[in-house]
Design a protein around this nucleic acid. Structure first.
Length: 251
DNA sequence: ATGTCCGTAACCTACGGA
């Protein structure tokens, strides 16, 4: 089974590239983030025409997550308990419980949005208390946290910034510590692990990026291959994130 | 790195958000 996660930064703006990517990469299960549209705005018919079932949670101009599957899709949850924004979608896909997450950005450490981000993480961790550890599970998406200093292009530039603070890292770690594997992709350009590059200042060209997207997977699931699909970040009209593509074998 | 891109509301540009 091939699974993938991609922050598309608007499914509307990315539609031609998304459809092309689905046809060339042929993932079985896909988690999307930042669809930036409501239910009516999601290109359900176009995606279904490629053989996928669709679960989308979105309410307008910001956020929005989806799960696509061509190996069956049974919706499980459309909302993180206590959180109203559309940042969380869960579906069972071909025996794999699939969670698409778009963790709040945090903005700055003194912004209320930072506290909201940590609260959001805590709620996400809480959902695992009700999760059967024997059920193959993947939580994938945009976590807006760089797990280590090596996951940003220059840690010195991040003094006082979000995405690298100990509380954010501890929150991400708490998910892994529950019993999930942070799937390691093949090394990318310059042996860096990045999944996101700012649009500005030629950051992608200079490979000044961040690893803030993750595939957190049950250890019972075997990983055959994993890579960051940099090709999807190139050319005209890309998202600022690249997909992560992982080939797995379920137990 | 603050150099771009997204959607929206309201216009043909400004803004919030990332």
């Amino acid at each position: 089974m091939r699974i993938a996660t991609w922050n598309v930064n608007s499914v509307g703006a990315r539609l031609p590239r998304l459809l092309d990517w689905l046809q060339t990469r042929e993932p079985d299960v896909v988690a999307l983030q930042e669809t930036k549209t409501n239910e009516a705005g999601f290109p359900t018919a176009e995606v279904e025409a490629l053989g996928y079932q669709v679960m989308h949670v979105g309410d307008g101009r910001w956020n929005g997550v989806a799960v696509l599957s061509r190996v069956g899709l049974e919706p499980v949850s459309r909302q993180l308990p206590g959180m109203t924004e559309p940042r969380y979608a869960v579906a069972d896909c071909g025996g794999l419980r699939t969670v698409s997450v778009y963790v709040p950005n945090g903005r700055s450490v003194d912004d209320p949005h930072y506290a909201y981000k940590l609260d959001w993480f805590a709620e996400l961790r809480r959902t695992l208390d009700d999760q059967d550890p024997a059920q193959p599970l993947v939580i994938m998406g945009d976590f807006n946290v760089a797990r280590t200093d090596a996951d940003v292009w220059d840690i010195k530039k991040f003094d006082g910034s979000t995405h690298v603070t100990p509380p954010e890292r501890a929150a991400l770690e708490s998910l892994i510590d529950w019993g999930l594997v942070d799937v390691t992709a093949r090394p990318g350009k310059n042996d860096r692990p990045f999944t996101y590059w700012d649009y500005r200042a030629g950051m992608f060209h200079k490979d000044l990026g961040m690893r803030i997207d993750y595939v957190l997977l049950s250890p019972s699931v075997t990983v055959q291959d994993a890579y960051v699909d940099r090709e999807a970040r190139k050319g005209t009209g890309p998202s600022d994130h690249a997909p992560i593509v992982v080939d797995v074998t379920l137990p």
